[in-house]
Design a protein around this nucleic acid. Structure first.
Length: 427
DNA sequence: TCTGGGGTCCTAGGACCC
DNA sequence: TCTGGGGTCCTAGGACCC
């Protein structure tokens, strides 16, 4: 049996942890640039604040009900997430925990007798709350997809304060699937949900489970569809995975605080994002072969349905993989010339590094001198200084110093657990 | 006026090779 | 001028996730 542990309204819970007066009150957390709403407390949901809805649209409700609002504080959330995951690893053993996202982890519970699962889950839930202050909900079932179904149901009934749901018999599974709308099945997104309902009259998880694998193959994207169907039937198709230590792609992208139309500003932003991405790259001891950048134009007509703006991409392949910021910045900034149009306003830009290889085994290019990675040492120094001093004390000149384009973050709480000067004070 | 940031996997189609 | 069949690799794009 597998379980998924999911932190309830994670970002909101993190904020509340240091502001106990907000317990039981509605709270929301905004995305970067204070653009849209990415976490809502139970109470805020009840007032009808929509997930991923734009902040400005929800503002009337927020003001009316006096909903506590925060900009996102990833230092805080990241640290608390680590504490929750460490707790799980201590309880179950490292090898039985697969961290799936900042607020979710899959557990392998195959070592426990079936009649103990409820108790085990309850114990996990209570320990995590006691040690970290974060409330979680837990779904237990034979497969990951079904555990997700169980997890969703466990939250339905918050009144019991249990937030545990174990699907350990065929009957319970069928009942649970019947109660789950097709769009709430893990792996069925908006597009598929619409297609399934409109063209195939598939409305619930149970309807989908009753289909044939061959059918799923043609309708739901090939092998992915087959896997989904197997999992719904209780047959494992998604194994527990080793933790993905190294990413295959690294990106850094941001909205601008306000639209930008100067190429020099775009270049500064690209240089800054490249430094950030390069830092992430070095953190996992990789080097990149390919740099891509993109910029997104501010849309002229918003009209009724918001679509993500048109983005323009450019990429270049390096003759030699590198993890050095200055070797990456130059080509990245040069790409800007290829895609920037004069007179156009942009709202967002990003940098992607791909073709990642371990940086101790860089493929040498016969046309180049032997790899010069003496910069690697300099980079480590910069990373260390930035890590200890914080706030990127050392920057490359190309990143600029004024940063007119920097994102808005007007309501960020203190970084209580990762900055000495922002510790919570108790008088 | 104002709509996030980071990832993954899969497929189709084109380029290229023998 | 005519011309097969099979394979690999890469990229773009579409779907999904939180």
């Amino acid at each position: 049996m597998k379980a998924i542990v999911d932190c309830n309204s994670f970002y909101c819970s993190c904020e509340r942890l240091f502001k106990p007066h907000l317990d039981g009150k509605p709270v929301i957390v905004l995305s970067n640039n204070d653009g849209c709403i990415i976490s809502r407390s139970h109470e805020a949901k009840k007032f009808g604040v929509e997930m991923a809805g734009p902040y400005f649209k929800a503002k009337p409700i927020i003001e009316k009900f006096n909903i506590a609002t925060f900009s996102s504080n990833y230092n805080l959330y990241g640290d608390l997430s680590w504490r929750v995951m460490e707790t799980l690893r201590m309880l179950l053993g490292k090898e039985n925990v697969e961290v799936y996202s900042v607020d979710e982890a899959f557990l392998d519970l195959s070592g426990y007798p079936p009649d103990k699962l409820q108790e085990v889950a309850k114990n996990i839930l209570e320990t995590v709350e006691m040690w970290t202050g974060i409330k979680v909900s837990i779904g237990v079932a034979p497969t990951k997809v079904l555990a997700k179904v169980a997890n969703r149901l466990s939250k339905k009934d918050q009144s019991t304060k249990q937030c545990v749901c174990v699907l350990d018999t065929e009957d319970k599974i069928i009942e649970a699937l019947h109660a789950t709308p097709i769009g709430d099945i893990w792996g069925v997104g908006r597009q598929y949900a619409e297609k399934l309902r409109d063209q195939y009259a598939v409305f619930t998880g149970l309807d989908l489970r009753n289909k044939k694998e061959e059918w799923a193959k043609t309708v739901l994207g090939g092998v992915t569809g087959i896997r989904l169907l197997k999992e719904l039937k209780g047959e494992t198709a998604n194994e527990m995975e080793d933790e993905l230590i190294n990413k295959k792609m690294i990106m850094t992208t941001r909205m601008f605080g306000s639209p930008v139309n100067k190429i020099s500003d775009i270049k500064e932003a690209i240089a800054t994002y490249t430094s950030k991405a390069a830092e992430k790259l070095r953190r996992q001891n990789s080097a990149a072969n390919v740099i891509s950048i993109f910029i997104v134009a501010k849309q002229q007509d918003y009209m009724s349905n918001f679509k993500r703006g048109q983005s323009v991409h450019a990429h270049t392949t390096l003759s030699l993989a590198t993890s050095c910021t200055n070797d990456l910045i130059k080509p990245a900034v040069n790409l800007v010339d290829e895609i920037f149009s004069k007179g156009c306003s942009y709202k967002k830009a990003g940098v992607m590094l791909s073709g990642l290889v371990p940086d101790n085994a860089i493929q040498t290019n016969i046309f180049e001198e032997t790899p010069v990675n003496h910069n690697r040492k300099l980079m480590s120094m910069i990373d260390n200084i930035n890590f200890s001093m914080r706030d990127d004390i050392l920057k490359f000149a190309a990143s600029g110093t004024t940063r007119d384009w920097k994102m808005r973050q007007e309501m960020r709480s203190n970084r209580y657990t990762t900055r000495w000067e922002e510790l919570r004070e108790v008088r």
